[in-house]
Design a protein around this nucleic acid. Structure first.
Lengths: 385, 385
DNA sequence: ATTAGCACTCTTTGACTTAGAGTGCTAATA
DNA sequence: TATTAGCACTCTAAGTCAAAGAGTGCTAAT
């Protein structure tokens, strides 16, 4: 694809994103000083259409980008602008509240991102299976009920009410609790099974039946911790966009969004694909293994457009996601879902910055020093031109 | 209003609710055997319109109920049908899961109610200011962080992570915790102030600065407990109804629903009004004071229609709410919000039954015996006819 | 290789018509 | 006196048509 085609494709995408109307050859000449006549543009547009980058709603209408067109745009033509000072301040202010739990920060971040982008924002809680238990406590609340508190690294705390045998008194429960504590502290979540945990039963001197119920409930509490939570906000904003003027379509879209576990699964798949792609790219670039190792990092952001999203009812949507880190290795995903027609450059800038601000906030909360700014590569490539 | 007018008004509301189309005189004759000609019906309809019970979208259209019409219908013409066996089973099954927290049950109930009615369902967490603290525990999680667990009656548990001075060790924290426990156990939430709590500071032998931070955080945790939580579900269902075919309107409606605190406030106001009304009615009915006292009970359900709802953007909606009880005196509200045009009878039946099932479930969870069925008055009056 | 020019296509808009559903009123009827 | 048949009138919904306008695609000229 020659330079001129690129310029024109970019101009078309930009215009279409701005207006939501098919872009005409004359309009292009008017709005971008291309130094070409509309007739020439028309010829180029026809070629771009043949190549599959553009589409026409009908013969005598302007062109709009196809999925392939958007893809080319995002991969090669995109310029990610710097975020405005106001946005930067707005995001920082919105996120710099004192939260007590990692989850609260994620929730707030999702809200922030949705506000900034005016689309739906989704976050997945971090993947903890690699983390280990720093502490686990079980405490009596009243006869028959107790609370389990599980502390992972990076200040992530989960708690859960459980039922325990009614005849268990506080002292007995404490003895079981200590036994569990000894047995599980430092263990990786992934490595904990019902068998691991049942070894804690020994040495309490209590009847197995009593102990086992507590162990089982504790186990459930731990497994619950591993479950990926999905945070989602901003659904109400979708209706403001012209692509959702059709209630039918909006309704269908909402029912997809309700299947949060599927959305989460999809986001994780995307992440894996992109990591693989990233690794492959690095492999080509470096010979030195050490360097290779160093450079293996998460992709800065991931985009999926229209049909690329293999979910029924998402044909007209796009995902932009990225990986956030909450200090250490604990990482989850956050992103937005909107119509295909979105300002990819601006959106990526917003997501990147929100992500950065959130990660900084998370480190602050855990008392870690701020991350080296340079280590945080915001954009994989700078604005072209 | 004579009998015939009533019959016809009822028929019109029923038809309009069923079809969402203005009801014509001929259609009434066809669908209800009124033994009258359409001309007579027309005359009656004209009178009902003069009286303010009906409206016409334009001169040559059928009639639809006005807010006043709906109000008359709900107050005098409504027949609440018994709920179907299938619905009964569906509700019971849906709610009979083992939850660990009162809040989880409320959440599930809201989901259930929304499913059953196909409208938005809202619940308010119980009003706890009258409850007292059965237990309050504070436990160290790691240096600088602790968890506060507050147990109210009826098995309601709230917990919250707090920050504590980093130099406070576990022993010291425990000493403060015990002091707080001694000071607050049995106290009504309403009666707890920063002053009450600060008296717990004495006798720990620790520097005031350290103790005060913990006290303050504990205080916040307690106040947090009092805050009314709003549970809401089923927003996505609204788009399925013809009254929300207009995206603009739907969008406005959603932005009102987002102001959860306002919705909650409104629900509580309604509750107060109705309780007052209820009391007044009882006052007329009985002379004996003792009887009066006995009969003061929550109204079975409350309805607010269209303009009666004094919230900008709710002019076309209706509320149906009721009071749920979670064992003892702990009570909150649950209800639905939908378009004015809804099947009030069926909806009231659903709400009443969901409420009943939920209350039963709640008692089960706290280990209370099932409530006396007769004590639970489902409908204030039975189907008329 | 580019462009001016023109024929052709398709959508949008508004005006107009028609069919149909409904009412309101009047005069006849029980 | 209450009810009803009948008819004129009103309003909407849907269809047709023409005209305007925005675009394209192609051809021939530059």
């Amino acid at each position: 694809m020659d330079e001129r085609k690129k310029t024109i494709l970019k101009a078309i995408v930009d215009d279409y994103v701005a207006t939501a109307e098919p872009v005409a050859s004359k309009a292009l000449v008017r709005n971008h000083n291309l130094q070409l006549s509309s007739a020439t543009i028309r010829n180029v547009m026809a070629e771009l259409e043949d190549m599959g980058y553009l589409e026409k709603p009908h013969t005598s209408a302007g062109r709009m980008p196809s999925d392939k067109g958007y893809r080319a745009y995002v991969d090669n033509l995109l310029s990610v602008p710097p975020i405005s000072k106001e946005d930067e301040k707005a995001i920082r202010d919105f996120l710099s509240v004192n939260v007590n739990k990692a989850q609260d920060l994620i929730e707030r971040t999702v809200e922030c991102l949705s506000k900034q982008t005016n689309y739906v924002s989704v976050a997945l809680s971090p993947e903890y299976s690699d983390s280990s238990i720093e502490q686990i406590k079980i405490m009596m609340i009243e006869p028959g009920r107790a609370i389990v508190v599980i502390v992972l690294s990076a200040g992530v705390v989960h708690d859960r009410l459980i039922r325990i045998p009614a005849m268990l008194d506080e002292k007995q429960l404490n003895s079981i609790a200590h036994s569990i504590e000894r047995c599980l502290t430092g263990k990786k979540l992934d490595d904990i099974t019902l068998i691991t945990i049942s070894s804690a039963a020994e040495g309490t001197g209590l009847p197995d039946a009593l102990v086992n119920q507590v162990l089982y409930e504790a186990y459930i509490a731990i497994k619950q911790t591993e479950k990926i939570e999905v945070f989602i906000d901003g659904r109400h904003r979708l209706l403001q966009h012209p692509e959702f003027k059709d209630v039918e379509r909006a309704s269908r879209f909402y029912s997809v969004l309700r299947q949060t576990q599927m959305v989460a699964g999809y986001m994780r798949d995307v992440q894996q694909e992109e990591e693989a792609k990233c690794r492959a790219a690095m492999f080509d670039q470096y010979d030195d293994d050490a360097e290779k190792e160093l450079s293996v990092r998460k992709p800065a952001y991931m985009v999926r457009i229209g049909q690329e999203i293999n979910i029924e009812g998402m044909e007209n949507a796009s995902f932009i996601t990225t990986t956030y880190r909450m200090g250490g290795e604990i990482a989850g995903q956050i992103g937005i879902i909107g119509p295909k027609r979105m300002n990819y450059g601006d959106m990526i800038a917003q997501i990147s910055f929100v992500n950065k601000a959130m990660s900084a906030e998370a480190r602050r909360h855990c008392g870690l020093p701020p991350e080296d700014e340079n280590d945080f590569e915001m954009y994989p490539f700078e604005a072209q031109e």
